[in-house]
């Protein structure tokens, strides 16, 4: 009866412990994702759902009514990303480098102050900046006037040429705390022995940053870049809060998120079309997937890592 079994008993506790996360994740992430992909292959004819294969994608890329909007949104999205990469990440790294300087006073205060906008709601950030920049009630024209630069002021959010860049910079202001925190953590993890050894070799100050610290934090910069990419191509909230679903002026701030929202849920007189909306969502998913794969296989696997 008590014959010892040489197969180990099935480890139920693993299933039990995994279950909550797997169930929740499946219900709120995996199932909706695949359902969206599935929905993009259907359309509605006479109030019944019909399978049409890749017809919706053909419309999205082939019909000028859709494709011009799509390419416009994609182009704007790239510009949104480029501004973040060129402004947010370098500033974040610079701030982290300054904060990690051992002689800096009030470092904890600066760190919190710069990080606080990140935890604010998009709606607050969008409305606050809209008011600051408003030509009628805003403080921006007055402040520029005080330093004699009133001529530089323009209703930025209302001009096609500036609106997207302005909103990108607002987003940079909000999120600069994230790269700063990540890089700051990476910089703190560099062992003092390495820096001291470099100092013995004659590398101090800026030279030690460029030659020692920067190579050591490159993997973190890579992670930040890919996080920025994913966040930017999924962005929606700030544009919606500041410019509404029409992403004005004249769609100049329209990014994939707002384009998808407008199509999926409908806007004003435009009736919602869940199938075309899902098609756009699927295209967004593909773009992000390709971007992440390029990074993972093309860049991250070749990156040199240093073990301490």
């Amino acid at each position: 009866m008590s014959k010892p079994s040489n197969t180990r008993p099935f480890r139920w506790h693993i299933v039990v412990f995994l279950a909550p996360a797997v169930l929740v994740y499946t219900a709120v992430m995996i199932y909706p994702l695949f359902n969206t992909l599935r929905l993009s292959l259907f359309t509605e004819i006479d109030q019944s759902r019909v399978y049409v294969g890749f017809e919706n994608f053909k419309t999205l890329f082939g019909d000028p009514n859709w494709s011009t909007q799509f390419w416009n949104a994609l182009g704007n999205n790239f510009w949104f990303f480029v501004i973040h990469m060129l402004v947010q990440n370098p500033i974040g790294i610079a701030l982290a480098a300054i904060l990690s300087h051992p002689k800096l006073r009030f470092a904890a205060f600066y760190r919190s102050a710069i990080f606080i906008p990140t935890i604010l709601s998009f709606v607050i950030v969008g409305f606050a900046w809209k008011l600051i920049l408003s030509p009628i009630w805003g403080i921006a024209p007055g402040m520029l006037d005080m330093v004699g630069l009133k001529s530089l002021y323009a209703p930025w959010l209302g001009k096609e040429a500036y609106a997207l860049t302005t909103l990108s910079l607002v987003s940079v202001w909000q999120f600069v705390g994230i790269p700063m925190m990540l890089i700051y953590a990476a910089l703190l993890s560099i062992p003092d022995e390495i820096l001291e050894a470099a100092e013995v070799e004659g590398l101090t100050g800026l030279a030690s940053f460029w030659k020692i610290k920067l190579p050591l934090i490159l993997p973190s910069i890579g992670i930040i870049s890919i996080l920025t990419f994913v966040a930017n191509f999924n962005a929606f909230d700030l544009i919606y809060a500041a410019q509404g679903a029409l992403a004005g002026p004249d769609f100049s701030t329209d990014i994939l998120g707002t384009f998808m929202y407008r199509t999926f849920f409908g806007f004003q007189l435009q009736l919602g079309d869940p199938h075309m909306g899902s098609t756009i969502a699927s295209a967004m998913f593909a773009i992000i997937l390709v971007g992440v794969c390029v990074y993972l296989f093309g860049i991250q696997s070749r990156m040199r890592r240093y073990q301490f």
Binding site: P135, P141, P155
Partner: peptide, 16 residues
């Protein structure tokens, strides 16, 4: 229209 009407919203106009 007023200065900066390009960025003037509907509630702005009502208030003005």
């Amino acid at each position: 229209l007023g200065d900066g009407y390009e960025a003037q919203t509907y509630p702005d106009s009502q208030n003005i």
